[in-house]
Amino acid sequence: MMRTIVTTIALLALAACGRADKDATDTADAGGNVTNYVAEVGTLNVPQRNAVFFRAIRDAGLPCQNVTGSEQIAAPAQRPMWRARCEDGAAHLIQVMPDGTVNVVSRATP
């Protein structure tokens, strides 16, 4: 029997990927500009993006020792969907929202 786990977390991992100069919990800078995390994730190189997805998967409480690959599988308006694969072969669907919230969907056995 399979069940689906859906977890929503805040995307804070960008701070660890070269954005340490910015408070990752604040989505607006001093000028009032709002950070679009969808765009931020889209500009990351593959190792950085995989690190962000690893953090999202682990923060969701799911087992994963390393994200070995990721690919964008859908791009609905402002909410692209990514598939991240862990070293054990488990795949997780990740949807980044513009405000930094991340939805992680995974199949797990009971």
Score class of each variant (00 low, 15 high):
Glu40Tyr: 03
Val6Leu: 09
Ile9Gly: 08
Ala20Leu: 04
Arg49Cys: 01
Thr8Met: 12
Ile9Asn: 12
Leu62Lys: 06
Gln95Glu: 08
Val96Thr: 12
Tyr37Asn: 14
Arg83Met: 12
Pro110Glu: 13
Asn45Gly: 01
Leu93Cys: 08
Lys22Phe: 11
Asn36Trp: 13
Arg3His: 10
Ala90Glu: 10
Arg58Trp: 02
Gly61Glu: 00
Val6Pro: 01
Val67Ile: 06
Ala39Trp: 02
Ala84Tyr: 06
Pro47Asn: 06
Ile94Thr: 07
Ile9Arg: 15
Gln65Ile: 07
Gln48Cys: 09
Gly42Ile: 00
Phe54Gly: 02
Leu12Cys: 01
Ile73Gly: 01
Ala90Val: 02
Met81Tyr: 09
Arg107Asp: 12
Arg83Tyr: 02
Ala20Arg: 10
Ala39Thr: 15
Val41Ile: 13
Gln48Pro: 02
Met81Gln: 12
Leu62Met: 10
Pro76Cys: 04
Ala74Trp: 00
Leu14Phe: 14
Ser70Pro: 07
Ile73Glu: 10
Pro47Leu: 03
Glu40Gly: 00
Gln48Val: 00
Ile9Glu: 08
Ala56Asp: 06
Ile94Tyr: 06
Val52Tyr: 06
Arg85Val: 14
Ala24Ser: 11
Gly32Asn: 06
Ala10Pro: 03
Leu12Pro: 08
Thr7Gln: 12
Ala84His: 11
Ala91Val: 13
Ile57Glu: 08
Gly61Arg: 01
Arg3Lys: 15
Leu12Asp: 07
Asn50Glu: 09
Pro98His: 08
Thr27Gln: 10
Asp23Trp: 11
Pro110Trp: 07
Leu11Ser: 13
Val105Ser: 12
Ile5Phe: 14
Met97Thr: 06
Glu87Ile: 10
Asn66Phe: 11
Ala74Thr: 01
Ile57Ser: 04
Arg55Cys: 00
Val41Trp: 08
Lys22His: 14
Thr25His: 15
His92Gly: 09
Pro110Leu: 12
Gly42Cys: 04
Asn66Glu: 14
Arg55Ser: 15
Ala75Ser: 14
Ala16Gln: 13
Cys64Trp: 04
Asp88Thr: 09
Asp99Ser: 15
Thr4Phe: 13
Gly89Trp: 01
Met2Ser: 14
Val105His: 09
Ile73Phe: 03
Phe54Ala: 10
Ala15Val: 03
Leu11His: 15
Cys17Gln: 14
Leu11Ala: 15
Glu40Pro: 03
Arg107Met: 09
Gln72Ile: 06
Asn45Lys: 09
Ala10Trp: 05
Val41Cys: 08
Ser106Gln: 13
Gln78His: 05
Val38Gln: 04
